[in-house]
Computed example of a mutant assay.
Amino acid sequence: MEKHIEIKLFATLSKFLPPDPDKFPISPGIKVRDVIRELKVPPEDVRIIFINSVRKDIDTVLQGGERVGIFPPLGGG
């Protein structure tokens, strides 16, 4: 059975959003790193990852149903 995640890419990463980010298909057991690769997001552009509003790392395993937010390095003053 195919599983899905909801994916949000912020700021400069938004150009990599898939056509249907609310139902991005995954295989259970896939890592965030693999999703980033599938979306063709340069890994060096990923700084912060949230899964279900909790900060996680790039090697976190996904099962389906998660909300994944990915942020680039942010600047500001």
Rank of each mutant, 00 (worst) to 15 (best):
E2G: 12
K3R: 14
H4K: 15
I5Q: 01
I5M: 05
I7M: 05
I7H: 09
I7Y: 05
K8A: 12
K8E: 09
K8G: 05
L9C: 03
F10T: 04
F10R: 10
A11G: 05
A11N: 07
T12S: 15
S14C: 11
S14W: 09
S14V: 11
K15N: 11
K15T: 13
L17Q: 13
P18E: 02
P18S: 08
P19G: 04
P19S: 08
K23T: 14
K23G: 09
F24L: 10
F24H: 06
F24I: 04
P25A: 04
P25R: 11
I26F: 07
I26N: 01
S27V: 15
P28E: 05
G29F: 06
I30K: 13
I30Y: 12
K31P: 05
V32K: 02
V32E: 03
D34R: 10
V35F: 09
V35N: 04
I36Q: 03
I36A: 03
I36W: 04
L39C: 09
L39R: 11
K40S: 12
V41Y: 09
P43I: 11
E44M: 11
E44T: 14
E44G: 12
I48T: 14
I49H: 00
I49K: 01
I49S: 01
F50A: 02
I51E: 00
S53H: 12
S53M: 09
S53I: 04
R55A: 00
K56A: 02
K56W: 02
D57L: 01
D57Q: 06
I58T: 06
I58L: 09
T60S: 14
V61S: 09
V61W: 13
L62K: 06
L62I: 08
Q63K: 14
Q63C: 11
G64T: 08
G65P: 03
R67Q: 15
R67P: 05
V68I: 13
V68P: 00
V68C: 03
I70W: 00
I70F: 02
F71P: 00
P72V: 12
P72M: 10
L74V: 15
L74W: 14
L74R: 13
L74H: 13
G76H: 08
